[in-house]
Design a protein around this nucleic acid. Structure first.
Length: 591
RNA sequence: GGAGUUGUAGCUCAGUUUGGUUAGAGCGUCUGCCUGUCACGCAGAAGGCCGCGAGUUCGAGUCUCGUCAACUCCGCCA
């Protein structure tokens, strides 16, 4: 099928083109046939241009134009002229193209759903016909932002002396942390590669090789359950630097975010970005990635309630737990049903119950008021800065759980009361620092590396390694924006002796270490510079920049919540012969 | 692994609480009319395995059980 190639796109025609003879290529967006006079909007990724067919000008052409239907691919030749009725709502709204010739390049099947901007269909259909969904300008905008971001990343890191190096996608499986995706080896039957959860080990090795400053925009893979902000394959901006300390990484990263927000959104973000410790984040916001666009801090109440007659509080105090609260300003107007919903929500995070206190007309309305003394109630009011009309939610449990519950309720309350809506155009960055090096797992009764086992402990806490490993802080840092973790990193251990101590503490045997990380341990013995780095979540960054709360909007071909790609039908069955070739056909025997 | 929400026309949804004649609307599609629209308008028509499978019942879109899928969340995500 021959067509006349465009000499302009659908977004560029402005009044200065009036009189030009132009050719447009694109999709017919809408066709408005007024009975003779026909308007056709032609769309491509650059914009929409109105084409007009006039019978008095060319009756045969106008008659033929009736064949054009929505989503047909066409070429149109015509003369640019000013519109008699301009449309101020579109960039090209001052002009129109009077058609002198056209051709239908491709007729479209009936689209299974309207692809016009602003019309949302079910996720299932959008993903099955992803190519149609991606025709929507609204979605294309997000990929234009994503592309802008790629350019800034390369420009910024390149100008700061970073080398981009590609690391392997087929690598050794290291079953610590997330589940690996495995790839069978045909040449070495019965053995498997893994897809990288991150290029962590390779970038450390590049430092040992003397690359000094490395970066890569890299796909990472984790075989874990999906969420609205989690896909099994996602993209990181991976960075590593030598002969540096934490401040250098933070500096470089802050410079990056300043530039991104300036270039893409035209917003100056504070530099330096504020920092809070992990302990403070947990204590005040019940989260290691607090959303600081609004207040609603958590208030600790043990002190004033330690002699309470209330059995629930007594038990928590006795077991060294925590009683704490948040104050939902003006929340007293919430209905009993809405309060029950909060309780239900809290239970998802392991709460056994949730106490509430409404303060209306100078009175207290609360199921637990009868168990508390006036003094205790005043204590709660004072510590929550209660004003008339407020609602205080009190949780009491093991310290960590109380904080997690209130942290979750804080966010939920912000969503339900509309606070979240009022802050949606704000950007609050922060560094969370002073992470614990280890976290204790009750189930297995041992310590695990909170970040990963190559994270350096703080020198100041070395002496606690043997006595109180739980209190050792790591040289690790996360960067958080609006309650989303958009990056994290650490200073690595470059001293093999300390690395050995770490493995000891993690209860890993000599052979286990050798088997899993032997090559890194060996490499560290050949002169490792002090080094560290960070990995930034590119998809989540695009989400924030483009104002969506779903990661599927910023990945061209995403998977469903159950890990399926509805468009191409993966994962799919394969031929027995393929399995045989790979030496894994035993798995298929029972089919 | 667990919980919740949803599944009815090509698309978005109503109808399910309280089972009952021929399952509705808007958009889209098709036909006709229409020369300044821009989500054009007007008139008409076609279009349904009520996700799938069992069950209860004289009778199921509606009730029960199972199952599949999408979404959201908990667990999980060093």
């Amino acid at each position: 099928m021959s067509f006349k190639k465009r000499n302009v796109n659908c977004g560029q025609l402005l009044p200065e083109y009036v009189g030009s003879d132009v050719i447009l290529n694109g999709w017919a967006s809408t066709v408005r046939d007024l009975g003779g006079l026909i308007f056709v909007d032609i769309r491509d990724r650059y914009g929409i241009t109105q084409v007009i067919f006039e019978p008095e000008n060319n009756p045969a052409l106008a008659e033929k134009a009736k064949e054009i239907k929505s989503e047909y691919v066409v070429w149109i030749q015509g003369i640019v002229r000013l519109r008699s009725n301009p449309n101020q709502n579109m960039a090209t709204g001052l002009i129109e193209v009077l058609a002198t010739d056209f051709g239908i390049i491709n007729r479209s099947e009936l689209p299974p759903f309207p692809v016009e901007d602003g019309i949302e269909t079910s996720e299932e259909i959008k993903l099955k016909y992803r190519y149609l969904d991606l025709r929507r300008p609204e979605l294309q905008k997000k990929f234009i932002i994503r592309n802008q971001l790629y350019q800034i990343i390369h420009e910024y890191y390149n100008s700061n002396g970073f080398l981009e190096v590609e690391t392997p996608v087929l690598m050794k499986s290291t079953p610590e942390g997330a589940r690996d995706f495995l790839v069978p080896s045909r040449i070495n039957k019965g053995r498997f590669y893994a897809l990288p959860q991150s290029p962590q080990i390779f970038k450390q090795i590049l430092m040992i090789s003397g690359f000094d400053r490395y970066m890569q925009i890299v796909k990472c893979f984790r075989d874990e359950d999906l969420r609205s902000d989690r896909q099994p394959e996602f993209t990181q901006v991976d960075v590593e630097m030598s002969f540096i300390d934490m401040e250098d990484i933070i500096d470089v990263t802050e410079g990056f975010f300043v530039k991104v927000w300036q270039d893409i959104l035209g917003i100056d973000i504070p530099n330096p970005i504020r920092r809070i410790s992990y302990a403070e984040a947990m204590s005040k916001y019940g989260s290691d990635k607090p959303d600081l666009r609004f207040g609603m801090e958590i208030y600790h109440l043990n002190e004033g309630l330690e002699h309470s007659e209330f059995k629930v509080f007594q038990d928590v105090i006795a077991s060294n737990g925590l009683i704490a609260s948040i104050n939902i300003k003006g929340g007293a107007s919430l209905s009993r049903k809405q309060l029950d919903d909060f309780t239900l929500y809290a239970k998802k995070y392991g709460a056994k119950g949730l106490a509430w206190m409404k303060f209306v007309d100078g009175e207290i309305n609360s199921p637990i008021a009868k168990f508390l003394t006036e003094q205790e109630i005043n204590y709660i009011k004072r510590n929550n800065y209660v004003a008339e009309g407020d609602l205080v939610l009190i949780s009491s449990d093991k310290t960590e759980r109380t904080l997690t519950i209130l942290g979750a309720l804080r966010l939920e309350a912000a969503r339900r009361t509309g606070i979240m809506e009022t802050v949606k155009n704000k950007y609050e960055f922060l560094w969370v620092i002073d992470f614990p090096l280890f976290e204790y797992d009750d189930e297995t009764g041992r310590y695990y590396a909170m970040h990963h086992p190559f994270t350096s402990p703080m020198e100041a806490d070395f002496h606690l390694l043997d006595t109180e490993p739980g209190k050792v802080r790591a040289k690790a840092y996360d960067i958080v924006c609006n309650g989303a973790e958009i990056g994290g990193g650490s200073i690595r251990i470059h001293d093999n002796k300390i690395q050995q101590i770490m493995f000891d503490k993690l209860g890993m045997s000599e052979s286990e270490i050798e088997d899993k990380f032997g090559f890194l341990i060996k490499a560290l013995k050949f002169g490792a510079p002090p080094h560290g780095g960070i990995a930034l979540g590119l998809d989540r960054l695009v989400m924030i920049l483009s104002g969506t709360d779903n990661i599927r909007d910023v990945i061209a071909f995403p998977k469903t919540t159950s890990g399926l790609s509805l468009m191409d039908g993966s994962p799919s069955d394969v031929e027995i012969s393929q399995l045989h070739e790979l030496g894994i056909d035993l798995l298929k025997k029972n089919d």
